[in-house]
Design a protein around this nucleic acid. Structure first.
Length: 341
DNA sequence: AACGTAACGGTTGAG
DNA sequence: AGCTCAACCGTTACG
């Protein structure tokens, strides 16, 4: 409770963290950036004041999945509420707005959409009606939920839901994987690839196996949990599409056209992460790009908040340990101006 | 000294 | 509307 900004703890290295919560994306990105510059993990750990265990984990995950994002926290896998079921429910409701939940349940069984073992409970159906099928005004749109129209978010995680994924069972179905880059205050040159990159990754065909679930992700792009009136919404799905725009303009105008010392940006969430700006000023990135070996595309992101990696990262993929040797480097040496410590 | 990882105390969110 | 509980978090400590 109370888990508001202001609180955070300090680790042995003097870094601030919020127990139970992921490190801000800005820092995660920074970690990967530095690693790509050839900085040793132990040094990254010290410089960013993030435990080496964490650095290790984030880098390992990045190497394996191409994503810098934290895993999907909370919730549970859909057990009965499959996309197909939701769709049927929507259809029933549409056909008969006055239909009762129990009637829907019966129909699901009758129509063979579900069998008695996986048919949703009446209360589940009610919730589905409430949460996912609020207004039937816009029939189409794939599935439900107020999903962001276009670019906005980064569908990163999605459940490895068997039916929704490729038949081969291969995870990481389609999205090209990705990478990101951060550009802070520097002039373009990259803007084009930026756009292209985003487009590429937003390719709808890449995102959803089928209509499927809204990808679930821990979204820290919105980060300013508490204190930002204009930027609400804590987790991707409930965020209004416009937010993205807001963030953009914010970053470049109001807030901090220039993010102070790297990772601990002023725009960061949780006031707590705001500290330390001065500690490693010389590590400031001029903006480097993260390029993941697996990924063909590279994305230049105009601001930290949206600098994220995109690749489908099924839950199951995360826990596994299959180190992928990576030998990519200096794809980014082009851009950065830092090298000394 | 560096780093992989289990244990730990924590939060989250779909069911 | 509230609870559960399995998912994830980062830190710490150990090897």
């Amino acid at each position: 409770m109370q888990m508001d900004q202001t609180y955070g703890e300090v680790n042995q290295l003097g870094g601030v963290f919020v127990n139970g919560r992921p490190l801000p994306n800005a820092i995660r990105i920074r970690i990967v950036e530095l690693a790509q510059l050839g900085i040793r993990p132990c040094d990254i750990s010290r410089q960013l004041r993030v435990s080496h265990g964490c650095v290790s984990k984030i880098l390992a995950r990045y190497n394996e999945t191409g994503s810098i994002l934290p895993g999907a926290i909370g919730g549970s896998k859909p057990r009965v509420t499959t996309p197909n079921v939701v769709k049927s429910i929507r259809d029933y409701k549409q056909g008969d707005p006055g239909i009762f939940a129990w009637e829907i349940r019966d129909r699901l069984l009758a129509d063979g959409v579900c069998d008695k073992y996986n048919v949703p409970s009446v209360s589940s159906i009610s919730r589905i009606l409430r949460n996912k099928i609020g207004n039937l005004s816009q029939p189409s749109q794939y599935d439900s939920k107020p999903s962001p129209p276009q670019i906005s978010y980064n569908p990163v995680y999605s459940y490895p839901y068997p039916n929704a994924m490729s038949p081969t069972g291969s995870k990481l179905g389609s999205p090209p994987g990705v990478s990101v880059s951060l550009s802070r205050a520097w002039p373009s040159v990259h803007t084009v690839s930026n756009i292209l990159g985003i487009r590429a990754f937003m390719d709808p065909s890449a995102i959803a196996g089928t209509e499927s679930y809204q990808p679930k992700m821990e979204d820290w792009t919105g980060v300013n949990r508490p204190s930002f009136p204009s930027v609400h919404g804590v987790n991707g799905i409930e965020k209004p599409p416009i937010e993205n725009d807001i963030k953009y303009t914010q970053a470049s105008s109001n807030l901090s056209g220039y993010v102070p010392a790297c990772a601990y940006s002023a725009t960061n969430q949780y006031g707590v992460y705001g500290g330390h700006a001065g500690n490693y000023g010389h590590w400031q990135s001029q903006g480097a790009s993260l390029t993941h070996p697996n990924s063909g595309s590279m994305i230049q992101s105009p601001n930290l908040h949206s600098a994220i990696s995109f690749k489908n990262t099924p839950r199951e993929a995360v826990g596994r340990k299959s180190p992928v040797s990576k030998h990519q480097h200096e794809s980014l040496s082009a851009v950065h101006g830092l090298s000394e410590s």
